[in-house]
């Protein structure tokens, strides 16, 4: 027993730094690993806004969680919290803005701990629970034609104000 303790003490003393680093690597991210993937099932939500893109055919839904459902990460699926979902248009359902649906989610945190959270919903799991009378169809995005021009518009904005500044600081004659 004494020999075993002596051996353990010797091992710990000699490899203290390595043991510390190994312990940190195991314990510190342990809380984070539990958050990397999560999959709340049967969560209900409402579509508060949505658009469809012609180029990709994908839907972009802004949803609000109503009831989170059983979830390993309840601090993420909080009632009232809003998420943005991108998904292909379900073949068996006609989604509308204002509908209340139930579906299975999966999510991930892009960059650990403080990163952005990406949510996905399984289109096959979607079920319409309620469709209010004032719900409206999801239309194509009005801004999509201008997406390709965005970098040029940004440069034009800066160039325009350079022009204005140039006019303001223009020296009329050599005496200025």
């Amino acid at each position: 027993m004494k020999a075993a303790l002596t051996a353990f003490n010797t091992l710990a003393r000699r490899n203290l730094l390595r043991l510390t680093l190994l312990t940190m690597l195991i314990l510190l991210p342990a809380g984070l690993w539990a958050l990397i993937g999560f999959g709340p099932e049967n969560a209900t939500f409402r579509i508060i806004d949505a658009v469809q893109y012609q180029q990709t055919g994908l839907l972009s839904l802004d949803i609000e969680i109503i009831t989170p459902g059983p979830d390993l990460a309840p601090h993420i699926m909080v009632p009232g919290r809003r998420f943005n979902l991108g998904l292909a248009e379900p073949k068996n359902l006609e989604l509308k803005i204002g509908q209340k649906l139930r579906g299975s989610f999966s999510g991930a945190i892009k960059d650990l701990q403080n990163g952005q959270i990406m949510m996905h919903v399984d289109p096959a799991s979607l079920k319409i629970i309620e469709e209010p009378a004032d719900s409206c169809e999801i239309v194509y995005s009005d801004w999509e034609p201008y997406f390709d021009w965005l970098p040029h518009l940004k440069v034009a904005f800066i160039a325009f104000w350079w022009l204005i500044a140039s006019l303001l600081v223009y020296r009329r004659n050599a005496q200025d």
Partner: peptide, 22 residues
Amino acid sequence: SLVGLYGNRNRLQVWLSLVVFT
């Protein structure tokens, strides 16, 4: 009347303003 309104400004500060704005 706006053209040349700030024509007598220090050119170094003008360039700094434009670079920071960009």
